[in-house]
Amino acid sequence: MSIEITVVFDVVPDRLEDVVDAFKDLCAATRKEEGALRFDAFLSQEHGSAVVLVEEWADQEAIDLHMKEEHTAAFLARVDGAYRTAPQVHRLRPLDA
């Protein structure tokens, strides 16, 4: 069974454009990784400065490798200090599991 994760980022409004660009680059690079089944970022229509990341991974090993990638480290450095609060990470499981 794959691993699905949703992360909500509350972005400082004056950093939003930079963060969106950083997410675009991260998504493009991550989608090329083995084990990345889905990696999409969205802007919330209800909360203008919230970015929502929707991920699906083949397994924990793929996630661990992703966190060691150069493009992941570059993304983290690029968005450092851009969030009003810590990202809300939701590792999902089906209701019938």
Rank of each mutant, 00 (worst) to 15 (best):
M1T: 15
M1L: 08
M1P: 13
S2G: 03
S2A: 13
I3Q: 06
I5Y: 00
T6H: 05
T6A: 12
V7L: 02
V7P: 01
V8S: 10
F9I: 01
F9G: 03
F9E: 03
D10E: 14
D10Y: 12
V11S: 03
V12A: 00
V12M: 01
P13D: 13
D14S: 11
D14M: 05
R15A: 11
E17I: 03
E17F: 02
E17A: 14
E17H: 06
E17V: 11
D18T: 13
V19G: 05
V19A: 08
V19W: 04
D21W: 00
D21V: 00
D21F: 04
A22M: 09
A22K: 06
F23R: 06
K24S: 14
D25W: 05
D25Y: 07
C27L: 05
C27T: 15
C27A: 14
A28K: 12
T30H: 07
T30M: 01
T30I: 10
T30P: 11
R31Q: 15
K32W: 01
K32R: 13
E33N: 13
E34P: 04
L37S: 07
F39G: 01
F39P: 02
D40L: 03
D40V: 11
A41E: 13
A41V: 13
A41K: 05
F42K: 07
S44F: 01
S44G: 11
Q45C: 03
E46C: 03
G48Y: 05
S49A: 13
A50R: 09
A50G: 01
A50I: 02
A50S: 03
V51Y: 05
V52A: 01
V52I: 15
L53Y: 04
V54A: 04
V54F: 02
W57A: 07
W57Q: 10
A58V: 09
D59R: 05
Q60H: 08
E61L: 06
A62H: 06
A62T: 05
I63R: 00
D64G: 12
L65R: 13
L65G: 00
L65H: 14
L65M: 07
H66Y: 09
M67H: 14
M67N: 14
K68Y: 04
K68G: 02
K68C: 02
E70I: 07
E70N: 09
T72A: 00
T72F: 10
T72L: 01
A73F: 09
A74R: 11
A74F: 00
F75A: 06
F75M: 05
F75V: 09
L76W: 08
L76I: 10
A77N: 10
R78I: 00
V79H: 00
D80Q: 10
G81Q: 04
A82V: 05
A82Y: 07
Y83N: 13
R84Q: 15
R84C: 03
T85F: 08
A86T: 12
A86E: 15
A86G: 09
A86M: 09
Q88N: 12
Q88Y: 08
V89G: 00
V89M: 02
V89C: 02
H90S: 14
R91H: 03
L92I: 14
R93N: 10
P94H: 15
P94F: 14
P94I: 06
L95T: 15
L95D: 14
D96C: 04
